[in-house]
Amino acid sequence: MKVAQIGTKHGHAAGVYQVMLEHPGVEVVGCFEPDKDRQSYCIDSGAWDDAVWLDSIEDVLENPEIVAVASEGANRESLAHTEAIVRTGKHCFYDKPAGDNFHRFMRVIEDAKSQNLEVTLGYMFRKHDGFQRMANWIRSGFLGHVFQIRAHMSTWLPEESEGGQHTDRRGLSYHRGGVLYDLGGHMLDQIVWMMGRPERVTPFLQNATSTTRDFMDNTLAVLEYSNAIVTVDIAAMEPQPTARRFEVYGTEGSAIMEPFEPADQLRLVLSEAKGGYDEGVTMIDLQDRRRYVDTFAAFVDTIENGTPSLRSLEHELLVQETLMRCTGGLAG
């Protein structure tokens, strides 16, 4: 199966291109970067030594042998790229989040549905050992009634950086919600898979330290369900290594991961023994899986063999809608 990539400005663009190169079932035709200064920077950086550079976007979109395309442009440009990819009848591995215009993304998804195309958002924890265990426990009722989830996924970002990626504080100030817009979808992808659509969302967005004054660097979103509360907090100035943490609390048990990247251990607490686990505290060793390898493999398998998608197109819409509610782009 022949694939290609459009864009290099997403923070994970180089990693996704490498994952595609290493997949035994695909042939990577190449990458088109519309910003030639950015392309020159990539070539000089050494991080793209294996890349084949295409001259125009038509080299991707008008090549009938290319079946699927990775959309890896900056967040401010990637929705337009994805729209073009789907319009020309190609499957799309679309790195998160899905732009700033939710209604435009809805139209892209409707177009994909009408053509029976796969659109997979690049949320990197869908095959994460710990998140998969937690989701299975929540969805099966193993932890009883889940009444609270806390998600913490902070980072450290420079005010400005070279390379023209727009992944620094100045670049991300373009987006309403700042760092919550950039990283929140990873947590919301898990949360709405576990809990469904929240009834109400309340964002708290603050500039606490950044000299780029319109960049929201200290953020919190509260998601309210009829019988549960979920909080997602993300900041842009936490010292490394960051304490990325995910906590689930139910009436029959709890589960905590810290850190969840790299995956290490999960602390499971049960009020009574079940499922092969003892009553009380059990520390479970987790497999640390490389980002995107399994999710891209599942994307390819869906296209070639018709296996069910990891997430439906309706789920992709729900994640983006919830993110827009959290950042203030849609009403809560």
Score class of each variant (00 low, 15 high):
residue 275 G to K: 14
residue 193 W to G: 08
residue 194 M to S: 08
residue 192 V to T: 04
residue 33 E to R: 10
residue 247 E to Y: 14
residue 5 Q to K: 07
residue 42 C to Y: 04
residue 154 S to W: 05
residue 25 G to R: 10
residue 3 V to T: 11
residue 203 P to V: 08
residue 186 H to L: 01
residue 91 H to S: 08
residue 205 L to T: 01
residue 163 G to N: 05
residue 63 N to L: 12
residue 214 D to S: 03
residue 213 R to L: 03
residue 328 G to L: 08
residue 291 R to Y: 12
residue 148 Q to E: 15
residue 208 A to D: 12
residue 37 D to Y: 12
residue 37 D to I: 12
residue 300 V to K: 00
residue 165 Q to W: 07
residue 246 F to W: 15
residue 183 L to Q: 07
residue 284 I to A: 00
residue 157 L to M: 12
residue 21 L to G: 03
residue 184 G to W: 04
residue 196 G to D: 02
residue 256 I to S: 15
residue 146 V to D: 12
residue 77 E to T: 14
residue 296 F to M: 01
residue 123 Y to K: 02
residue 100 D to P: 05
residue 191 I to Y: 11
residue 292 Y to S: 00
residue 314 E to W: 01
residue 198 P to I: 06
residue 87 R to D: 12
residue 297 A to V: 00
residue 246 F to G: 11
residue 287 Q to W: 05
residue 185 G to F: 00
residue 60 V to A: 12
residue 315 H to C: 02
residue 300 V to T: 14
residue 27 E to I: 07
residue 183 L to M: 12
residue 89 G to A: 11
residue 57 I to Y: 04
residue 250 G to D: 04
residue 238 E to D: 14
residue 121 L to I: 13
residue 160 E to A: 06
residue 320 Q to T: 10
residue 29 V to R: 04
residue 162 E to G: 11
residue 189 D to M: 00
residue 112 A to E: 04
residue 270 L to I: 09
residue 222 V to L: 15
residue 149 I to D: 02
residue 273 A to D: 00
residue 199 E to R: 14
residue 215 F to L: 01
residue 148 Q to N: 15
residue 105 F to P: 03
residue 301 D to P: 03
residue 156 W to D: 02
residue 291 R to C: 09
residue 220 L to Y: 05
residue 330 L to I: 06
residue 157 L to K: 07
residue 307 T to N: 13
residue 32 F to L: 14
residue 129 D to F: 07
residue 258 E to Y: 13
residue 247 E to R: 14
residue 241 P to S: 11
residue 148 Q to I: 09
residue 265 Q to G: 10
residue 108 V to E: 00
residue 302 T to V: 05
residue 100 D to K: 11
residue 138 I to C: 07
residue 198 P to N: 06
residue 71 S to H: 12
residue 312 S to H: 07
residue 167 T to G: 05
residue 93 F to M: 11
residue 76 R to A: 08
residue 20 M to A: 13
residue 195 M to E: 03
residue 294 D to K: 01
residue 317 L to M: 13
residue 253 G to H: 09
residue 31 C to A: 15
residue 197 R to M: 15
residue 172 L to K: 10
residue 84 A to F: 08
residue 23 H to M: 05
residue 259 P to F: 13
residue 257 M to Y: 11
residue 201 V to R: 06
residue 94 Y to P: 06
residue 44 D to C: 09
residue 292 Y to N: 00
residue 223 L to S: 04
residue 212 T to D: 01
residue 78 S to E: 04
residue 96 K to E: 11
residue 245 R to L: 14
residue 147 F to R: 10
residue 25 G to Y: 10
residue 77 E to F: 10
residue 307 T to W: 09
residue 63 N to R: 13
residue 329 G to W: 02
residue 289 R to C: 06
residue 250 G to M: 00
residue 185 G to D: 02
residue 123 Y to E: 01
residue 218 N to F: 04
residue 78 S to L: 14
residue 189 D to P: 02
residue 223 L to C: 04
residue 7 G to I: 12
residue 225 Y to M: 11
residue 99 G to E: 09
residue 234 I to K: 06
